[in-house]
């Protein structure tokens, strides 16, 4: 009885917390984020080795940051802005390569690796032989754990 009570109270606590979190997060209008900054984070500072426009303390990066701010204020879309910078600095100005053309490999390869790895593990599981039923094993495991 107390076991069932514990389960019930745990479910209630978890359920209510989750519900509140989801409701609050879903109805939240703040946290859209600073568009200029997030754009600047995705563009490489042209005179730096690996820093973004947002991170670099150099004057050029600041000027670029301001320019992005003006472009955003003028109603440019993200793609317009990226295109503008690619036209002057080349593709390498994008720290987040486009999911097309030469950048496509970078998007497919990780997913492919995940899929292949998952398939290998699943295959391993399938290759095993069953001697005892799942229910039996569950009982044994529970009993063992209770003891130990």
């Amino acid at each position: 009885m107390s076991e069932r009570l514990r389960t019930l109270s745990a479910l209630i606590v978890i359920g209510v917390s989750l519900l509140i979190s989801v409701l609050v997060l879903a109805t939240d209008s703040t946290g859209v984020g600073d568009r200029v900054h997030s754009l600047a984070e995705r563009l490489k500072c042209p005179i730096c080795t690996s820093e973004s426009v947002a991170d670099s303390p150099s004057q050029v990066a600041r000027d670029l940051y301001d320019l992005i701010g003006e472009q955003v204020a003028d109603g440019w879309t993200n793609d317009d802005i990226f295109e503008f910078f690619v036209a002057t600095y080349g593709e390498e100005v994008l720290l987040d390569p486009k999911a097309s053309g030469v950048g496509i490999v970078l998007w497919i390869a990780p997913l492919a690796a995940l899929a292949i790895g998952g398939a290998v593990i699943a295959g391993r599981r399938a290759g095993k032989h069953r001697e005892i039923s799942q229910a039996e094993r569950s009982r044994i495991a529970t009993a063992l754990e209770e003891q130990g």
Binding site: R42, K44, S52, E91, V93, L94, L95, D96, P97, L106
Partner: peptide, 24 residues
């Protein structure tokens, strides 16, 4: 590994230059 060496591989084969940075 891919993100680190892909720019090198790409440039060696096609001459195109890309950057792979923090957002990716």
């Amino acid at each position: 590994l891919i993100g680190t060496i892909y720019p090198l591989v790409l440039e060696a084969f096609s001459g195109d230059r890309v950057s792979v940075g923090a957002p990716w």
